[in-house]
């Protein structure tokens, strides 16, 4: 299974996502990137992340994204 850090790197190659604890505050993902990320996660893991979960705190860092995926039933 593709690691989250790798998926993020494909969207924004110029940033080191493993070095940030808050991707939004650090300006590493914008709203369009968020949609691209949600779409990629949906396809990669065969899920549909609910619109109500598409909030910055669920994409704040790799740990938060993993927690969201677990909530959506993904076994990491």
């Amino acid at each position: 299974m593709k690691p989250i850090a790798e998926i993020l790197k494909e969207i924004r190659p110029e940033f080191d996502f493993t070095a940030s604890n808050d991707f939004m505050a650090d300006g590493m993902l914008d709203s369009f990137d968020m949609v691209t990320l949600v779409s990629t996660l949906d396809k990669t893991f065969g899920i549909s992340i609910p619109g109500t979960d598409i909030v910055p705190e669920n994409f704040q860092n790799i740990g938060a994204i993993e927690a969201l995926l677990r909530k959506c039933g993904v076994q990491l």
Binding site: S31, F32, M34, V35, S39, D42, S48, P50, G51, T52, I54, V55, P56
Partner: peptide, 26 residues
Amino acid sequence: IGGVFDAIQQVKAGAPAYCTNFFPVQ
């Protein structure tokens, strides 16, 4: 905003080729 997200989710759940031009920041 809950109603807006519900409307989106209703369409998005299980969509084979979801398409949108709506990228709202909360």
